[in-house]
């Protein structure tokens, strides 16, 4: 078995299984915790629960005016990273073929040059995020092992993918194997660290939205 066979086969399959079970386990562990019973009477003008949750979910996509100046760089950098990553993961032809093999659905791919540009921007924004985390006094204090490992687990697949596509330094097979292994590592780590925020954001924003909107606040 070559390294590529191992990466494509047992490594990726195991990683996908850990990712799927891990995410489900983590969500189930949360959702089966006790839920507090709310006995206060909502304000008469309060929106329906789902409306309050949805409003909060949407509102937190962008900082409010008083905070815009202070958070503009971090916010824009975060958008460049998240959108760039989404473009690379879901817009690249090879990724779409892989996802079709898993889920049976596909969609048109984006041009290769566009994907390369997105990957470079993603790496640049990840680099900027790391520099900021290492130099900003607040971020330095509150950063944990999880933050740095999650950063690395996200950085490596994008970097290795970019290198593999451009056939740099090593043989393509070896680069592809390393890329797939880095994706496997990402998938394995995903459920156990802060990468889970991709799922948790639906809970946190919505629950806060419900909490405040029933009081009549716009948060």
């Amino acid at each position: 078995m070559t390294l590529l066979d191992f990466a494509r086969g047992p490594a990726l399959e195991t990683a996908l299984a850990i990712f799927a079970f891990g995410v489900l386990w983590r969500l189930a562990a949360l959702l089966f915790l006790p839920w507090p019973r709310e006995r206060s009477v909502p304000r008469r003008s309060a929106p329906a629960i789902l409306v309050g949750a949805a409003q909060s979910f949407v509102r937190h996509f962008w900082p409010r005016q008083p905070y815009l100046a202070a958070t503009l760089f971090a916010t824009l950098n975060s958008y460049v990273f998240h959108v760039g990553l989404a473009v690379v993961v879901f817009g690249m032809e090879q990724h779409i073929l892989f996802l079709r093999s898993l889920f049976g659905v596909s969609w048109p791919n984006l041009p290769g040059a566009f994907i390369t540009l997105a990957a470079i921007l993603t790496l640049a924004s990840l680099g900027a995020a790391l520099v900021r985390r290492l130099t900003h006094p607040v971020l330095r204090l509150i950063s944990t092992f999880d933050d740095y490992l999650s950063w690395l687990m996200t950085f490596l697949p994008v970097l290795s993918g970019l290198v593999a596509v451009n056939h740099l330094w090593l043989s393509y097979e070896r680069l592809l194997a390393l890329h797939i292994l880095s994706v496997a590592a990402f998938l394995i780590w995903f459920p156990f660290g802060k990468l889970m925020h991709a799922f948790l954001v639906f809970l946190t924003r919505s629950e806060t939205g419900i909490f405040y909107s029933r009081r009549g606040s716009v948060i």
């Binding site: 949360l30 959702l31 507090p36 948790l200 809970l203």
Partner: peptide, 10 residues
């Protein structure tokens, strides 16, 4: 409770 742990983990 669910919301507290979601907040902490999120």
């Amino acid at each position: 409770e669910e919301h507290l742990v979601s907040y902490l983990e999120g």
